[in-house]
Each structure stands twice: as structure tokens, then as C-alpha cells.
């Protein structure tokens, strides 16, 4: 089984384009100012399609996490166990991710400060945020 590659849909084109440049971004509604992640076809507050992809700081903290010991996709088995993290960015949105360096998982705690880094996933053509612990 190969590693899945995200598939572009009409509303997330700019997200993937930013990712290629190493930029983590999220949609901000130009009508009601709402910020959200993951990309959605409309603003989840007012349903407007009038949004832009705003660049994010990538700084945040661990909200919660689990340790994956049995990946569903066999192509990840050689990396297990690894931390699967829920990060709260300083901008006030949350996203699911993994650590850049699994050594950071050893003493990982809820509340730990982390910083995003865009890394290739799947066939290498798309980029998603991974996080490093800020020590």
C-alpha cells in the first residue's frame, strides 16, 4: 500500500500552493473575520466564499496527543510508534499533525510549545505541517 497523497479540490488550491513554498496557511473569511482549519468550501460561521489563505505563525502548543502503535496503512508500520498530535496554534485554531523528530515524543506533555515546519507527504508533491518541540 502506498502512502496517501492529498488530492487538490477547488477550494484548497492556495493551501497546497502555499505549502510548496514552505508556508502554513488557513482560510480567513473576509466578511466575518473568522479563521479556520482544515480548508472548507465556505466559511463555517457565515457560509461566505469570500476567503483568503492567511499565512500562520506556525507557533502553538500541544492540546492533546496519542501514540500510534498500529497504523492502519501498512506503509507507516516501520515508523511506529509515533505521536499523533492535536496542536493549538497561537492564532486560536487547532490542527492534527505529527512531530518532525520522533525523539520529541519521549517526554511530550500537553501544553508543550511547538513550531510548524512544512514537509512533503505521500508522493512528495504536497506539503503538510509537522511540528518540532521548542525547548
Amino acid at each position: 500500500m502506498t502512502r496517501p497523497t492529498p488530492k487538490t479540490v477547488p477550494w484548497d488550491r492556495d493551501y497546497w500552493a502555499n505549502g510548496e513554498k514552505g508556508i502554513l496557511s488557513a482560510q480567513r473569511c473576509q466578511d466575518c473575520d473568522r479563521l479556520w482549519y482544515y480548508p472548507k468550501p465556505v466559511c463555517p460561521t457565515c457560509m461566505s466564499e469570500n476567503f483568503i489563505y492567511e499565512h500562520l505563525s506556525g507557533a502553538g502548543e500541544i492540546y492533546t496527543f496519542s501514540i500510534v502503535r498500529r497504523p492502519e496503512n501498512p506503509s507507516f508500520v516501520d515508523e511506529a510508534p509515533y505521536a499523533f498530535i492535536d496542536v493549538r496554534l497561537d492564532e486560536g485554531i487547532r490542527l492534527l499533525s505529527r512531530l518532525v523528530d520522533e525523539a520529541d515524543a519521549a517526554d511530550l506533555q500537553i501544553g508543550d510549545r511547538v513550531q510548524a515546519e512544512m514537509l512533503p507527504v505521500g508522493d512528495g508533491t504536497k506539503f503538510l505541517p509537522y511540528f518540532r518541540k521548542v525547548r
Partner: peptide
Amino acid sequence: YAHRSFILPYGYGGPNSQFGMVQRLHME
């Protein structure tokens, strides 16, 4: 959509992963 593009590419452990997150947060 969210699973396909924003969860599975990381190497997902199935619903166990998310229940693990819920349980850790509840315990803490």
C-alpha cells in the same frame, strides 16, 4: 475530505488515535 487530505497522509491509527487523544485529555 478531512481524513483523505489532512489525516491519512500522516499515518493514521484509526479511531483509536482520536479516542486516545480524548482519553489523554480527559485523564489530564
